[in-house]
């Protein structure tokens, strides 16, 4: 990333131009950070603000007021709901989905990108088309399949269902990555005496690590984004994932537990963002340091 950015530095900037440009970039970034961060800041404030201040129209909304800071909302979230279990379930589902997705899409992506066989072209399109099938259309018929597999109202239902949208997309993504690896590298390895499988193992897979990481991240995010499947396949408190748990148990029609809702959103969302930031760096570095030059 640093190396990449260096390429964008102007060659011989005059000092003034340099300073002005920096100021502009920072101003732009601040603007974006404001837009992206405001809702998160609002979550943060709501999480720690006592109800008396939260619903007081005369209180200054952007910071804490006369009643100070409270941990009540977080206490409620942790002690009176299954939040901890939902978080654990979310992680279990997400990692299982990532694993299934990788196991299925990496080989498929490789085959579609680099092997010529009958029907490869139409398969590629066919697989991607399945990504277009809306979840709203699928979920009721899917219920029958899921229950036939004995997974209804279990985490397994989600682990089975989410790859239906991660596999098509990630297969395409992997195919894209495999395409960027020059054929010569693989051929060279095979001329050097590797079998094709050997070449895949020793050359192609290491080179596409960054791609796999990206795919993993996408599968992870996608499985945290779903709402419809999680809403309908699972309703036992101890089998819920976090976004459904928070929304279904903290909204009671007449009563929104805004403090706890925001606490849930904050605690579920921010760690993923940190993880993401970390992997994003790796991902960008992985590509720049990789085969594509």
């Amino acid at each position: 990333m640093a190396a990449l950015a260096a390429a964008y530095q102007p060659r011989r900037p005059s000092r003034l131009r340099h300073v002005r440009k920096r100021a502009l970039v920072y101003a732009g970034l601040c603007f974006y950070a404001f837009i992206a961060g405001l809702p998160v800041y609002w979550m943060f404030i709501t999480t720690f603000k006592p109800d008396q201040d939260l619903y007081n129209l005369r209180a200054f909304p952007l910071f804490f007021n006369q009643h100070g800071v409270t941990l009540d909302h977080i206490t409620l979230l942790f002690n009176r709901t299954g939040f901890v279990v939902w978080m654990r379930n979310t992680l279990v589902v997400a990692f299982a989905v990532v694993l299934i997705t990788l196991l299925v899409s990496v080989p498929a992506g490789y085959a579609l990108a680099r092997l010529r066989f009958r029907g490869a072209e139409s398969l590629t399109i066919g697989i991607f088309m399945t990504y277009l099938v809306p979840t709203t259309l699928l979920f009721l018929p899917l219920v029958k399949v899921i229950s036939w597999m004995g997974q209804f109202d279990k985490l397994g239902a989600l682990i089975l269902a989410y790859p239906t949208f991660t596999i098509p997309f990630c297969t395409w993504l992997m195919a894209g990555f495999f395409k960027t690896i020059p054929f010569e590298i693989e051929e060279a390895a095979m001329i050097d005496g590797c079998s094709r499988l050997g070449a895949i193992r020793r050359v192609i897979l290491p080179l596409s690590l960054a791609g796999m990481l990206t795919v993993g991240i996408f599968a992870f995010t996608l499985s945290m984004q779903d709402f419809v499947y999680a809403l309908t396949f699972v309703s036992s408190s101890d089998q819920k994932v976090v976004n459904i748990g928070v929304v279904t148990e903290l909204i009671r029609g007449d009563v929104f537990y805004w403090g706890s809702l925001m606490a849930g959103a904050l605690i579920a969302g921010v760690p993923v963002a940190i993880l993401y930031s970390f992997f994003l760096d790796y991902f960008v570095k992985g590509i720049t340091g990789g085969a594509v030059k």
Partner: peptide, 25 residues
């Protein structure tokens, strides 16, 4: 005995799914 609570607005969807699955509560 086990009691599950869900948001009132989500009950119809949940019943539809249980009906399709022939399982659940």
């Amino acid at each position: 005995v086990k009691v599950d609570h869900i948001r009132n607005a989500d009950i119809p969807a949940r019943l539809a799914a249980e009906s399709a699955a022939g399982a659940g509560h």
